[in-house]
Design a binder for these strands. Sequence first.
DNA 1: TAAGGTTCCGGGATCGTTGTCGGGAACGAT
DNA 2: ATCGTTCCCGACAACGATCCCGGAACCTTA
Lengths: 346, 346
Amino acid sequence: MKFEVVTIKDIAQALGISTSTVSRALRDSYEISPQTKQMVLECAERLNYRPNPIALSLKERRSRSIGIVVCEIANNFFSQVINGVESIAYDRGYNVIISQSRESCEREFIDLQYLASRSVDGLLISLSTETTDISQLKTLHAKGLPIVFFDRISEEIDTHKVVLDNFKGSYDATEHLIRNGHHRIAVLTNSAYLSITSGRIAGFKEAMHAHGLPLDENYIQHCAYGGMVFEEVEEAINRLLSLPDKPDAIFATSDKLTTGTLKTLKRRGIHIPTDISIVGFSNSEIAELIGPPLTVVRQPAFEMGQVATELLLRVIESKRPVTQFETKVLQPELFIRESVLQRSSS
Amino acid sequence: MKFEVVTIKDIAQALGISTSTVSRALRDSYEISPQTKQMVLECAERLNYRPNPIALSLKERRSRSIGIVVCEIANNFFSQVINGVESIAYDRGYNVIISQSRESCEREFIDLQYLASRSVDGLLISLSTETTDISQLKTLHAKGLPIVFFDRISEEIDTHKVVLDNFKGSYDATEHLIRNGHHRIAVLTNSAYLSITSGRIAGFKEAMHAHGLPLDENYIQHCAYGGMVFEEVEEAINRLLSLPDKPDAIFATSDKLTTGTLKTLKRRGIHIPTDISIVGFSNSEIAELIGPPLTVVRQPAFEMGQVATELLLRVIESKRPVTQFETKVLQPELFIRESVLQRSSS
DNA sequence: TAAGGTTCCGGGATCGTTGTCGGGAACGAT
DNA sequence: ATCGTTCCCGACAACGATCCCGGAACCTTA
């Protein structure tokens, strides 16, 4: 099942010249005569020669490819980020290798090992929910692998980061609920270890505080797998709904959690927004098609991918080691639709 | 920005032995004494040695990776296929390199070139809408690159194929509409060049025919970019709705077309199913959350990815050239929900 | 004691490409 | 006639790993 390829050697042999000459002719070196160049170029064309990037990677120790690790591609937010990444990388001649951690730190470990050994020139990563130990990333970074964090970052590594203004997204969503007369607002969120979680919780709490509303920790539910497993969302919702003082609104702080919440409520026959109001983070283009159209916090995912890639390529292509790093904060947008009831405010 | 790595040479030097010995010790060769093996293994562990797969790829002309080309990953069907692919490939020690053609044959061409030069051991592909010329794939296949088609296939290459029973999916959906009293059924479908289109159109026509209903070609609308650009769907729907004899149902034959249709109707304030009934192909997990819950044809996407990968790996790992190819046909499932009105049948 | 067998290990080629070095030919200048 | 340039081009090493050879050291047996 081998797969014969034309090499520089074949051209050299066909033309009776050395491989060095062929190599230089193809790279349009000044020390090759125009005639020879012409000859080589024609021969290369005729034999349909394609340079072998593997040999090049081995020699140059770079692959003109970047790796991206996300928890899941079947997620609107991340697939949009990836599109943003590709839109930039593609133009700059880089290929993108996509890896899914499936929210498992073990998978993430293996993915990283693969990407590193594959000589990616740089890495984009949004950490998995499970990840608490980032020593592997630290090692890679220390060895000189350019890394840019996006979305779910780690403060333990000093490098470029691109994040959402999680606080604001959360604050706005919560305030929208409060302004519509909701006081008992529950939050469904990710693992507390995740960087995005603290900001989103803080925004929520601050909004409650600003409006003089009490906080009840029972109203804050964490989903360890970020909604990857539906059951954990279902259980969290059930816990919320069996609380003595039932919430009048649920705020889901991620794409997966939002759809999980909707699915659970649907199955339990709970009507939105008359029975309960919903606001959720969502980058799904069909959020507006849901019954009722969903009020959402939308992240600039495509842009996040672009910005992160720009930063990464800047590090990769920098001549001297980069030591000044920045953290870019992108703004979320609140799309107000019909999943929040206008309650007679007290 | 180089990135120092430990090689077999470093181990050899540290231990004062040859690289051959190190190599064999690591591969647990019989001709290395237990003591030496122990020594090498310990040293490798200590230096955190990782074999360089690029060097291996160069030497062995295989990369233990397979390529997959889809039009778009931000599409439920394809992201589920990819998950199926990974679930198998991962267990068998293969890595998956994902490429998006974005329905452009030019991008597809470049993707293929990249994957081929990257020495993928095999290829999974669902053709882009634009693709009419598959000479590049033919060449690669002729050179010995194992290829398995899935979803959107080409009959011009003799190799394994995994497809949906498009005819049945379409027939069932159409029949469901007919049984509910719809007679003027419009179809929104892909480019006529696509393999999936003919089967889906045929299923529709046969169902109409079987129930003695007339066919009006004006009711069949093709979207050249398969719904990738929203406007083409919008225009197609508008054309349908401005027909003198307006359809009483629309059948959308792909994921993107379905969401495009819903979005258009929503914007025009047309109510489903009272104004018009809808059935669509969809693998979205939130089809049931839409207002109203959508009646859909669902494809076994995950399974399709698994089956295609199994077939591909079988070819890759086969000792002698494979000449017997099969085409696996997977069955769709019709999920009946509330987007089809029960009309008083005439 | 010499011939033949094991056991264990090193040298070198190889994969495709590039870069360093050097060298031959042609030409003009001395 | 000799030297110095310039213009082209080839030989060789290198990147990291594997594998075919070959060979030293030791043991067995005639």
